[in-house]
């Protein structure tokens, strides 16, 4: 039986790695990758807590209410939508600015 804390620790590490990436990558695609990591860190937590603390009666007899899984599904869908739009934006900016580096398009208009 793996303790719940270990999932939390895993998710915390994943989250921190994502934050670090989002803070340091110069490449816009790199930043999007980091954001995916952050979202997945959240998903791990959702699913793990759903499994460990998901029953209503506190005895482990009733079936688990799968709210966490449903949330995780939604997060996956939203992540998909976000990365689609984000990547298209990156491509549009690339066409315009010929660069993908964040400092290259820090002005709103040129």
């Amino acid at each position: 039986m793996i303790p719940l804390e270990h999932f939390c620790l895993l998710s915390a590490f994943l989250f921190c790695a994502g934050i670090y990436g989002a803070l340091t990558r110069r490449n816009a695609i790199g930043i999007l990758i980091s954001i995916e990591l952050i979202l997945n860190a959240a998903n791990i937590n959702l699913v793990a807590f759903n499994k460990y603390l998901g029953t209503n009666d506190g005895l482990g007899q009733a079936p688990t209410v799968p709210s966490g899984q449903v949330f995780a599904l939604f997060v996956v869908a939203i992540a998909a939508a976000a990365s689609v739009v984000g990547l298209v934006l990156i491509i549009a900016i690339y066409r315009h600015a010929k660069s993908l580096f964040t400092e290259g398009f820090h002005l709103m208009k040129e």
Binding site: A22, T102, E103, H106
Partner: peptide, 13 residues
């Protein structure tokens, strides 16, 4: 006010 979003994000984090 650098205009670089990542600077702002750093402070936010």
């Amino acid at each position: 006010q650098t205009g670089l979003v990542q600077n702002y994000l750093l402070v936010q984090v």
